[in-house]
Simulated scan of single mutants.
Amino acid sequence: MPKEFSRIDRIADQIQRELAQLIQREIKDPRLGMITINAVKVSRDMGYADIYVSLLTTEDLTEESPEVQESLAVLRKSAGFLRGQLGRAMKLRMVPHLRFHFDRLPGKSRRIDSLIDEAMGRKPVVDRSDDPESED
């Protein structure tokens, strides 16, 4: 028999959906990059929600990268506003405090994928040697 989702899991999923829309529509700070919310984990007592975000870029970023630090600072500064908007949108009696974290998993997975490709002797899907821009 399949396990049902708990209330905390459903709330975390809803927070993830609502925050994605709120960040895209309401936060107009130019320092904020293209943010993806990868996961939301809500504590059992609904006191805190840990939001794991990543930035959409072509380069591998770490938590110490200036772009990541700037984006996290903007998100942390707007956490109170986002929490209030979440309360209105979700109609929760108690809205958890929002804590934003950089998610290192996408970078690690790209690294592991490249190591596997290298070990298997596979070529990249996109061959950069035939790029017309590189001949200039």
Rank of each mutant, 00 (worst) to 15 (best):
T57A: 05
T57W: 01
T57M: 00
T58Y: 04
E59M: 06
E59R: 09
D60F: 12
L61W: 02
L61G: 09
T62G: 12
T62L: 00
T62D: 07
T62N: 05
E63N: 11
E63M: 04
E64Y: 04
E64R: 03
P66E: 14
P66S: 12
V68E: 01
V68R: 00
V68I: 02
Q69N: 05
Q69D: 03
Q69V: 12
E70W: 06
E70F: 02
E70N: 13
E70L: 08
E70I: 00
E70A: 14
S71D: 11
S71R: 09
S71A: 14
L72V: 09
A73P: 08
V74F: 02
L75A: 13
L75P: 15
R76V: 15
K77A: 12
K77I: 10
K77L: 06
K77F: 10
S78W: 07
A79T: 14
A79C: 10
G80S: 11
G80K: 12
F81V: 12
L82T: 06
L82K: 11
R83H: 07
R83E: 08
G84M: 03
G84Y: 00
G84L: 02
Q85H: 04
Q85M: 03
Q85R: 09
L86R: 07
L86M: 04
G87Y: 03
R88V: 11
R88M: 08
A89N: 06
A89M: 03
M90G: 07
M90A: 04
M90W: 07
M90Q: 07
K91G: 04
K91S: 04
L92P: 12
L92S: 06
L92Q: 10
R93G: 12
R93H: 10
R93C: 04
M94G: 00
V95L: 04
P96G: 01
P96T: 05
L98R: 09
R99E: 14
F100C: 15
H101C: 13
H101M: 06
H101Y: 15
H101W: 15
F102A: 11
F102L: 05
F102D: 10
R104A: 14
L105H: 10
L105T: 15
L105C: 09
P106S: 01
P106F: 02
P106Q: 01
G107R: 03
K108H: 15
K108D: 15
K108R: 15
S109I: 15
S109M: 13
I112S: 04
I112Y: 03
D113F: 00
D113S: 07
D113M: 00
S114N: 14
S114H: 10
L115R: 01
L115A: 12
I116A: 11
I116K: 08
